[in-house]
Design a binder for these strands. Structure first.
Lengths: 268, 268
DNA sequence: GCCCCGAGTTGATCGGCATCAAAGGCTCAA
DNA sequence: TTGAGCCTTTGATGCCGATCAACTCGGGGC
């Protein structure tokens, strides 16, 4: 018997704010979590995999699945009710937006990664669905209660936050010191790597093909460039044979090693 | 009787690698930590203030004080023995350096802040003393042992790591979207704020004066600019009356509110 | 088929910061 | 006092990416 069927995609409603009716607060024996999470595509890579069974059960009792269409806001700093989530599929973008209209994408959360800001900080970020999403969501209260009860969860979050910080600092180098050509190559390389190996870091395939979660404007907002510049640099990479010509959002990487090389050498 | 005297600056040796002889592993009753940490300038703001007495005692038993002269490396990614520390005084810079010579400063750690990367990640950072430092140091083994024994420490670290991530993301906006003029104003504002209010965030004074921990080259490496550009933008800020003319590393801010305004508006 | 609309591409020009160059100022030592 | 060496400032010029503008492409509605 396939347990996935009972929790498969067909059960999700298309309304963005509807919760899966099987989730919620019904008290469960230990095996409930096992059943609920069995079909989860990211269960071996997400933070749930790092905590004790008891903590995992508490998580299993509190989450609800949610689908979010591309473009919809997941949270913004001006709303009070916090939300936390693990990305099941799709990509979340974190944007720093200013009153004068300038904006910078400061983070992308891929499947198995965590979304949300515990201990409300000073940051002023907007989290949006870059593509259609499936999320494993927690209300702020529920998640914080679990965190207080199971400090090990803080440890798991700490590891992931440190990884995010490493990523952010790598990105800072790009924003401060790389040329436009390197930036575009870096972004495509990063997306290819993280889309094809969610959660863990393996050697990437030499060729790959994927749908970009980002438009040209969004790529530019990631890279500190304008969309015209992104477009030109993509044309250059195609001319070099690193990318194959394909439709707008479809990327066809012919050589990941070449792409990586271009992402680190300033000359054209 | 002044306890500070017993642990005052006069006891520090000038050799960078010498440890304070009073620190170390002598088993202590609860009050030992209280005595050792009593004179600590950052004890109310650092992460030690957020943990239980028992955990604080374990920390108190494990640390050693260390002075580090400006310019010296604290840790680099190629060395295996890890180190962790709380900054007592001075500023630590975290630099992302590449083989081709390009570099970007991706973090500054001020007094009361934490230095070190638990759970060794993928990042390739160099931590150096930007100014003369006093550190409260832990060996990698000692610190990780305490962390395993007292998970609450992970919670305290999580809070600080999340704050660092917020800071990094704010900095990413600067690197991606601000003009040279805004960048220089942002940096001076940030340094002034953090130097004059170590640890906590209050409204800054309208005027202030401080010694910069950074040379022009280092400021440029923070901002993704060249040192000549930094110099020109500083001249502009002086011409506007936001900064008063003073010697190279002495900054004399005449109006923090004006400085903040210039750090957010793209026009000159 | 038709138009419309938004996203992306390509071209022409502009401007801000980098780059190259030289001079000023401070510290230290002889 | 003088000169060396380093950091910083200031000036002249050039280039990369921004900006403005026109065009192409593809999809959807009628």
């Amino acid at each position: 018997m396939k347990l996935e069927a009972a929790f498969g995609l067909s059960r999700y409603m298309s309304q963005p704010d509807c919760n899966d009716s099987m989730s919620g607060s019904r008290r469960g024996e230990g095996s409930l979590t096992r059943i609920k999470c069995q079909g989860c595509a990211v269960r071996t890579a997400s933070l749930c995999s790092e905590v004790s069974d008891e903590c995992a059960n508490a998580i299993g009792r509190a989450f609800h699945r949610r689908r979010v269409p591309a473009g919809q806001v997941i949270y913004s700093s001006d709303q009070k009710n916090k939300i936390f989530a693990v990305v099941i599929s799709g990509v979340v973008k974190l944007t720093n937006v200013r009153p004068d209209g300038r904006q910078q994408i400061v983070g992308l959360q891929f499947p198995a990664e965590f979304v949300g800001r515990p201990y409300s900080g000073t940051s002023n970020l907007l989290a949006e669905a870059a593509s259609n999403l499936e999320l494993c969501c927690f209300s702020g209260d529920a998640f914080e209660a679990i965190m207080r009860r199971y400090p090990e969860l803080e440890g798991a979050l700490l590891k992931r936050t440190l990884d995010s910080l490493d990523n952010a600092r790598e990105w800072m180098f790009m924003l401060g010191r790389k040329t436009a050509h390197e930036r575009v190559a870096s972004l495509i390389y990063m997306i290819a790597e993280r889309l094809t190996h969610p959660g863990n870091r393996k050697e990437p395939m030499e060729t790959c093909r994927f749908e970009s979660p980002l438009s040209r404007t969004e790529m530019a907002d990631c890279l500190g460039l304008r969309l015209e510049t992104v477009s030109r640099q993509l044309a250059l990479l195609k001319a070099k044979g690193v990318l194959a010509s394909s439709r707008n959002r479809t990327f066809d990487v012919r050589s990941m090693s070449e792409l990586r090389r271009w992402s680190e050498s300033p000359v054209e």
